[in-house]
Design a protein around this nucleic acid. Structure first.
Lengths: 227, 227, 227, 227
DNA sequence: TATGAATGAGGGTTCATTCAT
DNA sequence: GATGAATGAACCCTCATTCAT
């Protein structure tokens, strides 16, 4: 999580452009994530950023541009965080597991980013709704590819892309929703929550009830605990 | 889906309060679902409703109140639609299955309601965000109860409410996300989509890959097909 | 000249739309004529009109629309004033004379109208610059037609449209400039100034110096004196 | 027409003040003539001038001062161009003719200068309107003096200064308007247009129709043709 | 009751102008 | 001397909300 400047007073110190830009983006993500696109005002963003409004416009353009830039930056950060955690050579279930862990890890450490991405994006109407729907769509596509791949040798394959895509959509939604729930119930570590979702989607509730549980391949150097 | 009055012209006829109110709420749901809370204007709502703005205020209060009322009404409608489809005496998996079917059925037939509930609600920081979070929370609670109940006799029970709640949250999110996906890919009937989700959460992807599929208890008079 | 409301204070009285619209337009013409398009602010216009800004927008649209409407209204008024004074059956010189008299008469009685039309219009750039150039072009065209017609039987006809048009442009410019001069030197009645221009363009300075003067056909009921 | 620096990049070289000032003024005239006073921005001017904004202010003061300076410089240039073309010993009609030719010549070769002077000046209510009115007034005075002088021995002299001044105003306006027309219809050489105006004001349209035309005293080395 | 007319308040954006390096 | 960085002050426009008929 990026730290924000305390509310400014007096003339802002001169800073190189790149630094200011990051500062502003951080403030914007913060405000957008708290209030949503419409309710957020450029006034408030500039105040949180510790600069005057004209700087906002000079550096990041219009409100819409600023928002789109935020979305893109945070989405990229999240995608990269997840991609970094997944290794293509692993078997599908392990890939899924790594992805989930990385996802929850990112959400836990970047609440604001997550909220901008998840909460504000749906506010359909703006031109970025599209942009965000695209990103979500791409994420779903990736998961779908994973699922398809994992079932290449199995009985379901004939289901076709649409089936995989719909399951991926469900899975992504489950992840999002669980992430939100987790933010409101943060008692448990990321790994536990991730494992729970992994179990649900991989084993199914039926198996869970029957006592069958999915276990991650035991690895030693595992910083986070998992149930 | 509720029908809207064509754009009004001239003085509106005197109508019993209840009818007027329904008329206005229908218009409001329509506009809110299309534009979102902020972008929707009282002007447009009153126009679609076929009455003047002062009437809007006289009947439904402020914009926030109106929105909250919409949310409540649509949420109630949905809850009832689902509750109607579920019979408490059935075993848990059947209850879940019935609930899912009812949910997708409702969404398919009430796009506007669904969009108000799902899309607009989360994006606002206002006082209704709370209201909606509450409703969603209650829904999650119900599902959690179902899950808990279904596992009363099983190995997992000790997990406690939190585990069930988190799984319920994931399940609800999966349903929401899949519903959205379905609205964008409406080729398949509600029942098929519902069944797919049922399979995912009950059997798990692992079993699906292995060819194990969950089947609804065969009933005769079943209007919709299921996979 | 239309009278303006004194600066408003408190809520404006309810007025029928048509009346308010005229009131606003009068104020707008006043302010635009004094400050020009850019320097005029909607705030000031609304203040002069005795209403709040939202009414401005409700009735007359954006600033540009308002300005264009002003231009059109005043141009129409002036054109009509002139057209009314000219009779098509008269010989060309008499038509020109009548036109000049009507023009100066209008300018004398509608300073603000004139200034909006003349001063502000040239402020090139806006989309109305075009509009106004058109109107001026049409006026020049009319004068050119008059000149062409007046020379049908003479030696110059071969000169072609361009020559007539250029002379008409010169004549129109002379009229505008003289009108401005007159507003700064208002000692003499409209008729005198008009006659002077008539003499200049019809007799030429050479003849004037030689003592030859153009005389209007003597009519009795002539409200304004002419030299 | 003054040439502008290509868009600058990097630090501007140190230059003697006079050169810098000319550079800036050229840019300012260019921008003002294209956009008008209000629409022109100091940003654009400094960019065209190839220097930074603080330099702009250091050298030429505020926007208003800069504009006034532009007006003064261009007006002076034009006045001098005209004065150079007129010889005081010639008879009045020849002086007028020379002046007109010089004027049209200047306009043809200095479109930007002309547009700043003519179009932008009148439309502003600011303090330079005054300045420009002054200059125009002086020009009118000069023409008036010429007219008065040309009629010293004639029948009209008693008319007094006001009559001459008003005629001069008309003449100046005719010239301005014709110059504008010419810029939009540039097929004919400056001399032809000038001659046409000369004929109009000296012979009058009445004589023109009758076939009487004013002829310039034949001179040999005349670069531009005249009708 | 029902409404056309009216407004306070605030949001996005830009611009002339000036520090501080 | 020269500049990138910074801002106060306006301006256009819209919207939720309310009078007064």
């Amino acid at each position: 999580m990026h730290a924000e400047q305390p509310v400014r007073s007096g003339r802002a110190k001169r800073l190189p452009r790149a630094v200011r830009e990051r500062q502003i983006m951080d403030a914007a993500v913060d405000v957008f994530s708290r209030l949503g696109f419409h309710a957020a005002s450029m006034d408030e963003i500039s105040e949180v950023a510790g600069i005057s409004k004209p700087m906002l416009y000079a550096y990041l353009g219009s409100k819409e541009e600023l928002f789109a830039t935020c979305i893109r930056r945070e989405a990229t950060r999240m995608m990269e965080a997840i991609a970094t955690g997944v290794e293509a050579e692993e078997p599908p279930d392990v890939q899924l597991w790594s992805g989930l862990r990385a996802f929850f890890g990112f959400v836990g450490e970047n609440r604001a980013s997550w909220q901008v991405l998840h909460r504000q994006a749906s506010s359909q109407g703006g031109p970025f709704a599209e942009e965000l729907a695209d990103m979500r769509g791409r994420a779903i596509g990736l998961v779908a590819a994973l699922l398809v791949h994992s079932s290449d040798f199995a009985t379901v394959p004939r289901a076709g892309d649409k089936e995989a895509e719909s399951l991926a959509a469900a899975l992504v939604g489950a992840g999002e929703s669980l992430a939100d729930w987790w933010l409101d119930n943060p008692q448990e570590p990321a790994g536990v929550v991730a494992a729970r979702l992994m179990n649900l989607v991989w084993m199914g509730f039926g198996d869970l009830v029957a006592g069958d549980v999915w276990h991650p391949p035991s690895r030693r150097s595992d910083p986070e605990g998992d149930a």
